[in-house]
Amino acid sequence: MIVFDLACDAGHRFEGWFASSDDFAGQQARGLVTCPECGSAEVTKAPMAPAVPRKGNQVAETRPQQAMVSAPLPPEAVEVLAKLAALQKEALKQSRWVGKDFAEQSREMHYGERDVETIHGQATLEEARDLLEEGVAVMPLPFPVAAPEDLN
């Protein structure tokens, strides 16, 4: 499998997994590669950082595995994903990016230490579990969100 960083004509960045470069080209030519955020089929490969192998004395970072689909999705699924991406985009317009401070700021709002507002950011799986155990209302976003400083 090959992982490509992709970008749509609206500037949204996302990843795609393909069996080969030819597989990507074939799916793209058939209009099967679409942006999960806006549904655009005008998708191209984005510049990628090279994969540099770790040194033999470095510990590998462990991440939970992600469920993947290797076949093109049915049109109904593509439509649902496009609607979900549009809903997330609208919701994030009313939200403020807080980056890695997400867990801390969510906790402060929950305990009344600051004004409540809608925020989004990054949290580790452990931080998210801790928040949920404390009764803090949080949820994962269905699609990845880039930090504002990473957007063009």
Rank of each mutant, 00 (worst) to 15 (best):
H110A: 14
Q27Y: 13
A49I: 08
C38T: 06
A60Y: 02
T118W: 05
V145N: 03
R63S: 10
I2D: 07
A77D: 15
Q27A: 06
C35H: 02
R63C: 02
V69K: 15
P47E: 11
E113L: 08
L81H: 03
L151Q: 10
V3D: 12
P75Q: 13
C38H: 03
A86E: 12
Q28N: 13
A10W: 02
L87C: 01
V69H: 14
D101N: 14
P53T: 07
A86N: 08
A46V: 01
M68N: 13
M139F: 08
A7S: 12
D22M: 02
E133V: 15
A46S: 12
D9P: 03
F4W: 12
E113S: 03
A82M: 01
S70E: 11
A82R: 14
F14A: 04
R54F: 01
C38V: 04
R54I: 03
V52A: 10
D130I: 11
E76A: 15
Q27D: 07
E76K: 12
R54W: 02
Q105H: 09
E117T: 06
G99C: 05
P144R: 10
V59H: 12
D9G: 02
V136M: 13
N57C: 02
K93W: 02
G112L: 10
G39Y: 06
V33T: 06
N152C: 04
E104V: 13
A123T: 05
G31M: 05
G11F: 01
K100V: 13
K83F: 00
A7I: 15
Q58M: 07
A41Q: 15
D130Q: 15
F143E: 03
E117W: 01
G11T: 03
Q94I: 01
D115H: 04
V59R: 13
L73F: 13
K89W: 03
A49G: 05
A7M: 12
D130C: 07
N57I: 04
L6D: 06
E90H: 04
L131A: 08
W17N: 09
P64G: 06
L125R: 15
M139D: 08
R30L: 09
Q105W: 07
Q105T: 08
H120G: 03
G16Q: 11
S20L: 04
L81Q: 05
A29F: 05
V136E: 13
M48S: 15
K89N: 07
E108I: 00
S40Y: 14
L6P: 10
R129N: 10
V136H: 13
G39D: 07
L92C: 04
C8K: 05
V145M: 05
T118K: 12
V69S: 15
R129S: 10
R129D: 11
N57R: 01
R107I: 06
A25M: 11
A82W: 00
F102K: 14
L131Q: 07
V145Q: 11
L141Q: 02
F18C: 08
S95I: 04
P75W: 12
V116L: 09
L87N: 04
P50W: 00
A128H: 09
E127V: 02
F24V: 00
F24E: 00
A146T: 09
P74R: 10
L87F: 07
V136C: 13
V80A: 06
L87D: 09
